[in-house]
Design a protein around this nucleic acid. Structure first.
Lengths: 350, 350
DNA sequence: TGACATTATGGTAACGCTACCACATGGGGC
DNA sequence: GCCCCATGTGGTAGCGTTACCATAATGTCA
């Protein structure tokens, strides 16, 4: 492997001059630049980022630590963050915690060891201590998707409260009186917020006692189990609210297995859309978040911090969008065609 | 940020001794070890991987360069590779090329700059030159999912030919005579192989003239478009073969929009399963590949190469599995229930 | 003419770590 | 007594790059 020194020797210049050519920094005469470029070409020189980073104390690398890479919502967030990063000449590393605090801790340590410049964190738990540790090691942090109990970092998240309220109001309007919320872990803010938003709207309608919340995991299997429990309640809820897309899928499977028809027997609404087409049966009434924007905004904020921006920490709450489809009965109750339904949904921006 | 030097000073030992404690290598007396560990704790020392890698000439990092992170097939491959890597103390970096050779090139350069030890590559094009370049820079390569025109690296892939043959035979058995293959780019080996396998089996049945192939992208929108074209042919095919999951979804959407019933009017079979439940309507007859295994095996091979294994390059062809479901008419033609069908599918291991 | 910015190039050291070699001690086997 | 091996510790140098400072030639302006 040729080094910068080798190139310098071949081009008959000092190493630093080669560095300037490669990084396009400082002054280099056109003639010298060409000579160096020829030498680079000839030797197949590729700069060693490790050495560069060691010396310059920055790695031009961000990391995105998230709870579930298999969830299209987060993949989209990653895409947004990746695009922002790439534009700024940064690389993005993806780390999957599966919602486990221990994994999260393990990854954060690894990232400090690698001296990544900044971390976009979807915290699995109460991340305050971890964030302070990172910052102590000189790593900037921006939190995505979830709130913090204390303002120790910038936060970019969706409007869980508002979205859930809207979904509930819609259900109430459709005549539902008894409902259940199927949600994720209690320590995750989105999980709590979505329950709360839904409850608030139930209370508005004088129905505060008619809504039961089930806490579980943001996973399909948990959604399946929680839907089963919910259906065993008396009085049986006529509407279910799944607080994320995977829970919704699990719930749908449970309803199908039990022979419960959606929306005739039970209505279902959900937070987080699925990517159009990944489900060939796009009939869920959902509140969807601007996932791509969330990633972009988060990375932009992080990069700004890296450039020395020392403003007080801010919380960016992105607006969500409600899309009415069949699952909440908003398009009547005739049975669906086999492979789905092409009628355009109603979209309401909150 | 405390350095190894600082720890050494505090513990009253030489830097190298701290290194030995941190890396658990060489001889260190118990008493000294404890003193060093105390100093590490007190100073909050975190080793600098950059410096370590620069000196030791290995980064303990692998990269997986793939064509589509949003495809669950590849996410699963990534999981398998990630698990193998983690077990060996390696980190895995994910890079998404979106099937563009230019992006692939860009990433590969970046990875050489970062001196990753090895690359798992799902090549977007004829990767022979790129692989040779990587190896020249001291980076080992294992190719996943796709064949190479020359044996310049280990390959781990699924049995595209056999799987496609099986699907075709199944369709022929169901009485189909006219069919169309909707596939990905021509320069991708899986795309060609799956067409060929299908054609071979058509020929077996004396139907070689009754099958038309449409080349496009491994994407939903392309699947939609190709299905549309296929349906316009005369005679109209009674069976479609989508060579990956996304094409299948696009085709399904197209069929739905055109009011074509599956499987009554047209049968559909596909390569690559979708993760159970991601589609609430799991009724596709598919050949599925052991994606997780592919990732695991690939990473294991790569790690073995890094440990100096110099065997000749091998090609590992993983067996695939055919699952018969409704979309090919194998369970009769009564209309499906609204949300799907819980009847257990038939599975045939090839 | 001198002062000063602009352009162009290089020398030296340092980033934080480990490879390599040297050396010291103690014990066991013959 | 000797050799040899296991154990324990350190010194020196160097991985490949860039930060920082120095130098010098040229041009510009008052």
């Amino acid at each position: 492997m040729a080094t910068l020194q080798d190139v310098a020797k071949k081009a008959g210049v000092a190493p630093i001059t080669v560095s300037r050519v490669v990084n396009n920094s400082g002054y280099v005469a056109q003639e010298v630049r060409e000579r160096v470029e020829a030498a680079v070409e000839e030797l197949g020189y590729v700069p060693n980022i490790l050495a560069r980073s060691l010396r310059s104390r920055q790695t031009n690398t961000l990391a995105l630590v998230l709870s579930d890479v298999t969830n299209p919502f987060f993949t989209t967030v990653a895409r947004g963050a990746g695009d922002s990063a790439a534009e700024a000449g940064f690389m993005l590393i993806l780390c999957n915690t599966d919602e486990r605090e221990q994994e999260e801790q393990r990854y954060l340590e690894m990232l400090v060891q690698r001296r990544v410049d900044g971390v976009l964190l979807v915290p699995a738990g109460k991340a305050v201590r971890q964030i302070q540790q990172l910052r102590q090691h000189g790593t900037q942090v921006v939190v995505l998707d979830r709130r913090l109990s204390e303002p120790v970092a910038d936060v970019v998240r969706g409007d869980s409260l508002g979205g859930s309220r809207a979904l509930c109001r819609h259900l109430v309007q459709q005549g539902h009186r008894v409902s259940a919320v199927l949600t994720g872990p209690k320590q995750v803010s989105t999980s709590r917020d979505r329950v709360q938003g839904f409850r608030e709207a139930m209370a508005e309608a004088g129905l505060e006692t008619m809504c039961r919340a089930f806490y579980g995991q943001y996973s399909q299997s948990s959604g399946y189990a929680m839907a089963g429990e919910a259906l065993n309640q008396t009085p049986r809820p006529t509407a279910l609210f799944a607080t994320n897309n995977f829970i919704a899928i699990g719930a749908l499977n449970c309803l199908r297995d039990r022979g419960v028809k959606v929306p005739e027997d039970v209505a279902l609404v959900a937070f987080d859309d699925l990517p159009p087409g990944l489900v060939t049966f796009p009939f869920l009434t959902v509140v969807s978040q601007p996932a791509y924007e969330m990633g972009r905004k988060g990375a932009e904020l992080l990069l700004r911090r890296l450039n020395g921006d020392a403003e007080p920490y801010q919380e960016v709450v992105l607006p969500v969008e409600m899309t009415l489809r069949r699952s909440s009965g908003s398009f009547g109750t005739q049975p669906e065609s086999m492979i789905g339904d092409a009628s355009p949904p109603l979209v309401e921006r909150l």
